[in-house]
Nucleic acid binder design. Sequence first.
RNA 1: GCGAGGGUAGCCAAGCCUGGAAACGGCGGCGGACUCAAGAUCCGCUCCUGUAGAGGUCCAAGGGUUCAAAUCCCUUCCCUCGCACCA
Length: 896
Amino acid sequence: MSEEGYDHTAVERRWQEAWAEADAYRTPDDAEDPTYVLGMFPYPSGKLHMGHVRNYTITDAYARYRRMQGEDVLHPMGWDSFGLPAENAAKERDSNPRDWTMDCIDTMRGQMESMGFGYDWDREVTTCEPEYYQWNQWLFEQFYDEDLVERRAAEVNWCPDCETVLADEQVEGEDEHCWRCGTIVEQRELDQWTLGITEYADELLSAIDDLEGWPDSVREMQRNWIGRQEGSRVEFSVEDHGPVEAFTTRLDTIHGATFFALAPDHPISEELAAEDDDVAHFVEEVADPDGDEPNGVETGLTATNPATGEEVPVFVADFVLSDVGTGALMGVPGHDERDHAFAERMGVDIVPVVAPELEGDEDPEAPDVSEGAYTEDGVLVNSGAYDGLSSAAAREELTADIDSAEFHTQYRLRDWLISRQRYWGTPIPVIHCDDCGPVLVPEEDLPVELPEFINTTGNPLDAATEWKHISCPECGADAVRETDTMDTFVDSSWYFLRYVSPDLADAPFDVERANDWMPVDQYVGGLEHAVMHLLYARFVTKAIADMDLLEHREPFTNLLGQGMVQLDGEKMSKSKGNTVSPQRIVDDYGADTARLFMMQAARPDTAFDWSEEGVKSTHRFLGRLAETVRSFAGSDAVVGTDPGDGAEADAADATAAYVRSEVDAAVAIATENFDDLGFDLATREAQQLVGTLRSYREYVDAVHAPTFRRGLETAIKLLAPVAPHLTEELYAELTGEDAGLLVDAEWPTAAVDIDEAEKRRQLVENTREDVRTIVDVAGIDEPERIDVVVAPEWKHRALSIAIDSDAPNLVGELMQNPDIQRHGSAAADYAKDLQAEREALRPTLSPDAEREALEAAAWLVEREFEAPVRVLPAEEANDDAASKAEPGRPAIDIAE
RNA sequence: GCGAGGGUAGCCAAGCCUGGAAACGGCGGCGGACUCAAGAUCCGCUCCUGUAGAGGUCCAAGGGUUCAAAUCCCUUCCCUCGCACCA
């Protein structure tokens, strides 16, 4: 008989409408500390892809689960809708970015609805609307007032394809390519706006330790990115040029500093290049900062080593980077591999000044550094008065003793460059006046709205002359607007706050409500944002907190980085042409199938392969589920069914008792897994329960209706977060009109704990396997009767005494117990067994629970071997069998 | 080079934090029930040996801790990701 399946299109549409009608996902403003579940909002590129579907299925399933647990839930969605693709698309189509973006948003919102994602659309946030981006401008001005905004001339990353600058975080890989388009970036010198994220470097770093709900990988990447290093600044006096500052983490090695090196673009190098052809030639022709070889040129100058007073040669070298430290360094070839290589090439002295620490009183001996540097900490030698000090102590003392030296902590993190030479972004609210310089647009004049799009080769804002020319707010003179817009990561650095009060007209967010609702409890998204978005959001949250606008200093309590959806082990991508269209899957199999397949395929944070076979199998499962519910709901059995758990209805029905215990087990296990986002295991459990119910239905003439009904209702509820449409439909068919919507229904509770449930399953499974093994190994063709004999009570007692006992002689202790002792040699034998395995003993089910579990499962054995099964207490069985039975391992006797 | 995360049966993938049963589930393969047949569904098997539930070998490789290790510790190899002439 074939499964007829179900009409997924009709079912899904029906319930999407019903949910909308009921406003099922609305989070009222007076909700108290709702569970805040958030997926990273998408860039509206036009169509949902599988990555989106996975991301948003995870948040939706979790949000639905929490809601069924009785929690208020905040689960909003919005659009990260500024950005270059819209501008490019507009140019290609001779349209404008706004219309194109809005079309994309409409399409994607429709697709999200058809996936059944339950968002509170009243809280939708769209960053390209002035109602949103005015607050980017407002925040920019607050940051300005807090001295967190700077305009500075700097060497910046320029993407020639995007025709704009990029922040350091947006340049990726060894080849330094643009994060968005992959083009190799160039350097340009420009006046640009930056936000002072470095002010927060220390806190951004140290607070990572407390982000226990974040993946280690992300925490580590952020630590690396911030790149805190403790060391000392020290000045070397360069002949004719005065003191030059260098940074070092190894001031203890300063007595071995035998040269001094400057970056090719260090101011002194540039001065020297102007008058020295060799230096100029090196800087312009030879220097190769990306090469493996440390190249350099002798300047002929010397510098004074402040520790030794000696004159050491000064080089311009390409391995010295102007944006690391001070762009100048002291070279210690004895204790740094790269300095060593350079010194060998240039013929500079190599002097060991740190020796390995030795045991006992032996005098430390300078290491041989002729072939390679000794880079470990140790004990100082060749360092005059500092000889014998440990490296750590020497760093302290030298920093104190050398006049120009001071402790300094250095970061790799740079300020966040937010200027972009693009149209489709938030205008930076600044006016440039020849007399007054850059002036903020007065708060009452915000927002600075984007002018009409002009299709031009440069920045359209430059071409918008009418918009651009304005009078200075301070002196009234003719002035021009800033034509750079903000990095779109500014938009996403605080959008999670806007959802709290999306329509608020006089502030970016409602402070009191944000204090109650934030932080986001569960954030889900791709880890390509591990540094960029997630670091900016943390920074902005902290800065806002310091403006007394928020009591929270971290935005996201728990972070899940969802894994990729792959095809044949490869990432799906348009360029590879190996994408699977979510739309097609929804058309062919329905949203529930797509969602359930994805959630059961793997844990949400691991990559998995898309499999059409798997999708089909999931679809067939949903068909079986529908058939099972419908044939029951449409039968006479359901009439007059008490919706209680039915446990008391017919205690003698062992098969029904088995089903009930499996229902409890499924609830206990699925609930625990939902709690920690283990959707694969949770849905598996629910699917297994459906299988159990179907086996039960097939085996008995008539199911015990209350039990069966509870089983179905449980399966429906356990699957509801992942496959909401079909379960809603079946819930209505099973419970009738009055029960209300499944989205609002209560999560089921289990009568057993996981430990108990697993012990039962283990016992049943082991016993069934033992029967199979015996039948197989003994070559029994058609068993006549199968007896399962439960261990006598006294053995259970002996076992539990043995587990608790720490007596040296266990046999002796057990035999002192009269209840055990009176079983004579059988007791002695068992006691010896227990003694032998003493350390490995583990608690089993109680004798009653064990017998009950076996009786309940007897039908499985009867069905499989087509022979009657008796579960007997030891007293009723023959002595031979009874003597073999042990707690957790019943004796089995099969008659042929 | 530094750092993080991994390597589990033919394949995918749980378990590892909190040590205790050849190790969940799916796919593929094999056998059986149902069927004229196919599909679907259902019941088993799928490391080796074994005529009563046993024995052996096993979770990248090697070593260690422990009564007991896929699980804890160390070393090595391989994979993935991030950072990197970082002073």
